[in-house]
Design a protein around this nucleic acid. Structure first.
Lengths: 228, 228
DNA sequence: GTACATAATATTGTCAACAATCGTGTTGTC
DNA sequence: GACAACACGATTGTTGACAATATTATGTAC
């Protein structure tokens, strides 16, 4: 399974995971060309499967596929970045609303188990796992909302947030701090819709506040795009 | 080009279009199994291209692909239907905001030309074209907002709305009436953000109001007949 | 007749070879 | 040297054949 996608499993999921992580950790620059044969050699998989993975990553907004040209790491603009966070606030507020309505003891345990993993990764300095788990928390939450639609929307926005964060963050910090997630769980446990939604909006604002969305792009953009 | 997707062209776009239309016109019931070989015979295309088309339709939420099982026309629940329209109101209000900011004379002409096509299809009783163009209006609008992100989000939600409307509508009416679209153009021309956003929210409420969210009316028919 | 195992069929998943396209370097002309 | 036409290598796109999996049909015991 890759980023909450039930239908994706096995080798294809692994390519997606690893490319996703490489982007999150800035090992892959926005605009970088992801060549199919190169990837198939690296992962020792057929080109068809690489292609499938790239197609999935495109639908998550992490890469852009140009016909007859190939796949490139996406380059969201500052305007798009702001829109992503604006909609995440609205979308995830709705998610929280539904989660509070239908949360069970088992659901709470799921969230707490995830939070424990986040803390463990954070404490041992494993930023790679920490970033992955921080995004994963929102996917678990979306799952608990019990709507495939909401879950897929959250996935789309969270993956884009990962890319945006890796492009525009000023400090070398996590995507989400575990503390915020703890507060969210508490508000959900108390079955308090208003405070829980407020906590979520604040949390997303925190994430956005760590970014520098006021100036020109720090990473050099594609020349073709700049002059086109 | 299929539903505002620049990158999709040629035969694959045609399969998508025709399946999309068949769903919109209730010739394909939700849950129907879209068999790859059958489709490849109907459209006289290779199975690989059919597969590609089904994958695109999945990312638009029109079909659900189950591993080793195949592709099925999606079956959005009533809860999901409400969420789609809720989110469309928020999303398209933002689209309108950006369109009003950056609209040009040429943009207005584009919208009016589209509206004229809608009216023509409506007047000659071509419901097939009318439904397609009604959804298309929102895609043109999203394009004028000048953000790939907003455009792709609108596409995802509009395609889902099409499916939802075909599932839950009580009267045999259009997805969108051309009158609402005319009002939107006028508000945009006046560069009035508030009224334009209000018009959009009202318009989407109108569409939602035509649905009966308590009764499902599945129409079963042969796949070959539906697509012919 | 029902339940279960098993074979037969239908359907999807995967691959490697081939075709089409694009980017780039080269050559020829002025 | 500037420019266009061309050819080459690199990269993506497509196909048909084959493998894996699921669904249906068949047979058998009780």
């Amino acid at each position: 399974m890759y980023q909450g996608r039930e239908a994706v499993s096995g080798p294809v999921a692994e390519i997606c995971e690893r490319i996703w992580l490489s982007i999150a950790e800035k090992r892959l620059r926005p605009g970088a060309h992801l060549k199919e044969e190169e990837l198939s050699e690296i992962f020792d998989l057929s080109r068809a499967r690489v292609r499938q993975a790239l197609s999935l990553l495109e639908s998550d907004g992490l890469v852009t596929i140009l016909p007859n040209r190939g796949a490139f790491v996406a380059q969201p603009t500052i305007e798009e970045a702001r829109d992503v966070f604006l909609f995440r606030k609205q979308l995830e507020a709705r998610v929280i609303e539904r989660v509070v309505e239908r949360i069970t003891e088992d659901g709470i345990r799921q969230l707490e188990a995830h939070l424990a993993e986040e803390r463990a990764a954070h404490d041992r300095g494993d930023t790679s796992a920490a970033v992955q788990l921080a995004g994963g928390f929102h996917l678990v939450l979306a799952d608990l909302a019990g709507s495939d639609f909401l879950a897929s929307m959250v996935r789309i926005l969270v993956s884009r947030s990962t890319l945006i964060t890796s492009m525009y963050r000023v400090r070398h910090l996590n995507n989400c701090a575990p503390e915020d997630h703890e507060g969210l769980i508490n508000a959900i446990r108390a079955r308090a819709p208003g405070p829980a939604q407020a906590a979520m909006r604040e949390h997303i604002d925190h994430v956005e506040a760590e970014l520098d969305l006021g100036e020109a792009t720090p990473v050099a953009r594609d020349l073709r795009q700049a002059l086109g």
